[in-house]
Design a protein around this nucleic acid. Sequence first.
DNA 1: TAGTGGTCTAGACCACCGG
DNA 2: CGGTGGTCTAGACCACTAT
Lengths: 233, 233
Amino acid sequence: MSPDARLSWKDVRDEIRDAILSGRYAPGDRLPRDADFAAMLNCARSTVQRAMQDLSDSGIVERRRKGGTRVRPDPVTRAMLEIPVIRREVEQKGGRYGYQLIRQAEAVPPAGICAACGLAAPAPMLRVEALHLSDGQPYILEDRWISLDTVPEIRAVDLTAQSANEWLVLNRPYSRCDLRLYAIPAETGAARLLGTAPGAALFVIERTTWIDTAPITTVRAIAAPGYQLVTQS
Amino acid sequence: MSPDARLSWKDVRDEIRDAILSGRYAPGDRLPRDADFAAMLNCARSTVQRAMQDLSDSGIVERRRKGGTRVRPDPVTRAMLEIPVIRREVEQKGGRYGYQLIRQAEAVPPAGICAACGLAAPAPMLRVEALHLSDGQPYILEDRWISLDTVPEIRAVDLTAQSANEWLVLNRPYSRCDLRLYAIPAETGAARLLGTAPGAALFVIERTTWIDTAPITTVRAIAAPGYQLVTQS
DNA sequence: TAGTGGTCTAGACCACCGG
DNA sequence: CGGTGGTCTAGACCACTAT
């Protein structure tokens, strides 16, 4: 055992985390300065900084300039969600992917859609409804609005061949993305398309994306019964 | 305008991201080495490294030693979920928090709970059912199993005064956390407690936590109708 | 204003893994 | 094996903000 073995920032993070978990520093307490930790642990300050950044990202500590580093008094669970393109998701689960365009029409969006996009006034949009299938079974029903101001090329895309989901992801990167997750009872139309009974409990992923401040698209993805969104960290 | 203004790692990130978005590098393409970017942009390699780490975290590029950095051919949406302690969540929304312990009993967990915890054989657990309220209205119904092997002290905690949610978060930090999100129809019991009709669509957050490989708790948090989980990035 | 975290630099070495 | 990303160090300066 070499007492001077090089410390990686993960070692430092674990050291500090254990000190917090053991109760040496209570919630709300102020921790030593990075420089002091560096001296105590015999490593560079930037190594401590890297460790602290991770602890801060995990929601364990709060850092403020001049205010120092404190143990978060109100811990939060933080987890990374990963939502792939639907085709990939189906294929990764070993299913055969299928896709049907249901409807496509230019229209003026209702107030709810404008609000989701952060638009004060209605702007022309393309509404696209489509069904994604796994092994021939309904998988996700998508109800999408695409901004024609931001994405005029979408008019020329053949959405019977390629889903708007896929085209947008590959061709229209975004700089901001909001997600809303909730449950709704199946309306009669959605129930028929998803092969379930009206009123069934359905999981919904709503997503809106922007490039800078210009809205690209907002979509309501309604999953067939049994769908789960999973994360681990 | 100084053409040699110091570049921050965010500037570098934006520079590289824009180069990718503009199509200069297509999905699957290999990017220049960090050192080359550093030379091109006239900054230190570690600055490029910091920028690349962020792009990698965002799912825009993939990095491998010796393999170099490539534009991800299969973009994913990544978003950070934040789930606070329920009391905090209610208070932050401006509500008055309330809490009722419904039931508490030691029991042998069914197979599903063991599986969620990664247990091959059943181990003694404490089952706790409780209702969280906002302004007196049902907010979240929680059905929790706590490992008595890992957390024996829980026997001595007065769960009528403080929710297991809160006690565990403050006293039992975890090293791993799995989340599962889905929708279910309300069973009659849950419907009554949540003040809704049987069969109503309810949003569920299932969470299992471990310390190292020892399970701490697994909980099914059933939200009252109207609940939304929101994230932004 | 002074103390703290945040970042940049330049250089070095290490760890991983593709050819 | 050699090329690439990952990390550590030491030092400097900057940016924010609590006191």
